[in-house]
């Protein structure tokens, strides 16, 4: 399967801080790929660079065979990449239906068509009953669901989900996983950032681990948890001590 998204040598500097320093990742069409890494590894920055919210300092982002690094943020959505935010960014004074309609207007300029599509997406994510609620009056779980709905309404080929599970109760997490499976079944490719590995393990075919701004692992989830470099990055590593002890001159 050819990759829908190919990222090579992605780098992002903020002044002298190297937030990203060589991120490589591939997302196969139709798959769910997880992007994980410890706190401060650069996951959200990588996301921002792929989605166009930040301009990468170096490297390439190839989407559907087309170089999109540095493309204006609003154009990336039109190319077919939707996203959610780690900290929810709702349209506070819009109702749920209005917010999702706003997303749907990207491909359906006529309001009537956009509303109809938004209704369909709301039914799909299970927010239909709350369609007349204001975005700011929703629970965290529903706000995250609303962000997913808003992004889905733009009919993306690739959906970037930034910690959609964070802050959810176990029951809400199960609902979210169920929603993810249905999104994949719809034919949407998903790249998701998760801080918590256990959430990703059962659903991601492929995971990419980054640490200190670099890709340190790429492979299956099962292999990831056995990988020495990954464990070292996550645990600050007893292995390293062992290595030092074992190989001390």
């Amino acid at each position: 399967m050819s990759a829908l998204l190919e990222v090579r040598g992605l780098a992002k500097r903020f002044g002298s801080l190297r937030a990203l320093d060589g991120v490589d990742l591939d997302v196969a069409g139709g798959s769910l790929t997880g992007l994980i890494g410890p706190n401060g590894a650069g996951k959200s920055t990588a996301f921002a660079c792929i989605a166009g919210a930040e301009k990468p300092s170096a490297g390439s982002v190839c989407f559907r065979g087309r170089e999109i690094a540095g493309t204006a943020y609003h154009r990336v959505a039109a190319l077919g990449i939707g996203r959610t935010y780690q900290l929810v960014q709702t349209f506070a004074d819009m109702t749920v239906l209005e917010a999702v309609t706003t997303g749907a207007l990207l491909r359906r300029p006529r309001l009537r068509d956009a509303v109809a599509h938004a209704e369909e997406v709301l039914a799909f994510v299970g927010l239909s009953e709350k369609r007349y609620r204001l975005g700011r009056a929703l629970t965290i779980a529903d706000k995250k669901r609303l962000e997913v709905a808003r992004a889905l309404a733009t009919e993306p080929a690739l959906l970037l989900l930034d910690e959609v599970m964070a802050g959810l109760t176990p029951a809400e997490c199960r609902d979210a996983v169920d929603l993810l499976r249905r999104i994949l079944a719809r034919g949407v490719t998903v790249l998701m950032v998760e801080h918590v590995m256990e959430v990703l393990m059962p659903i991601a075919e492929h995971v990419v681990v980054i640490a200190a701004g670099k890709t340190i692992f790429s492979g299956t989830a099962a292999d990831a948890v056995r990988d020495a470099a990954v464990l070292a990055a996550y645990l600050g590593s007893p292995l390293e001590h062992g290595e030092i002890a074992g190989h001390a001159p």
Binding site: G52, M94, E98, T102, L106
Partner: peptide, 26 residues
């Protein structure tokens, strides 16, 4: 109020970053 422009303006006022993420040219 019933047009794409009206929705887009309200979205921009509420949250410009989220608005850009759904393809709105501010």
């Amino acid at each position: 109020e019933r047009s794409r422009l009206g929705y887009y303006l309200r979205a921009l006022r509420a949250n410009h970053a989220a608005a850009a993420s759904v393809g709105i040219d501010e």
